[in-house]
Amino acid sequence: MTASLVALPTVFSIGLQRQLAYRWNYLLRALFSAMPLLVSWVFWKAVFQGKETVGSYTLAGLLTYYAVLLVVEAVSSPADDDFQISREIREGMLNSILLRPLPYGLYRGALFLAGRCAYLTAAVLPVALCFFLLSRVVPLELHSLDWIHGIPALIGSALLQFSLTLCLSLVSFWLLDISALIFLVYSLEFLAGGHVFPLDLLPAPLFTAARILPFAYEYWFPAASLCGTIPREAWMAGLGMQFGWAGFFLLFAAFLWKAGLRKYTAAGG
């Protein structure tokens, strides 16, 4: 176990180098990720025409939510970890990893962390520029961000997204192509995760239902925690749900890994 922990910084470093080898790809990704914020600004400006509030949101409050989503996405969303894991299983590349005294979950965790660090580095400038430009036309409420409640929720979101990604990818032991499954979950994450609109704009019964599902804790919960729109008690309960779901998916991933390895056939030299 100690040997595994000693190896993790090296895995992290290799992951970082692998990610930064494609700097342009990362920069493009970061630039394009700002596009939804621009679209949201144009669309919601038209929605707010002649109105002070929509639901409990002002235009500035709503756009702050979308801006904060960019930060949440940069910190916690896996890039193509799901497809990498799937390829490793499908193409028999697991062989070399299985021979090493390093648990696969920890190995992937270190690579996920390296990917997030590389993406954050590439995204800092475009995101900051985007915030700056947007704050010139709309008074974003960035000064009142609640980092004390936001940071634990961000960490929980990263853990939840990583564990869910791990579960989905490990289905590759049984299915040849999991891309349809991955994109189906993406669509659920977008809708029920609060990526398209803040979940509290939903009618009350749907909002309650959305908070039972794990997706709300991937985007809406950390973004709303950072924006400071969640009362303390609800935040505590939300954090419990978030880490509870993350724990569940980690356990489920461990189960899938054990079951999958029994089915896995190592081929090639």
Binding site: Y22, W24, N25, L28, F32, S33, P36, V42, F43
Partner: peptide, 25 residues
Amino acid sequence: IIQAESVLLGYYSIFQVARLPREAA
């Protein structure tokens, strides 16, 4: 650019504009 897979993300991101009512812009 050697690895240009993110252009697909770019395509989907940019084409969100097509769903906007023109008068909103």
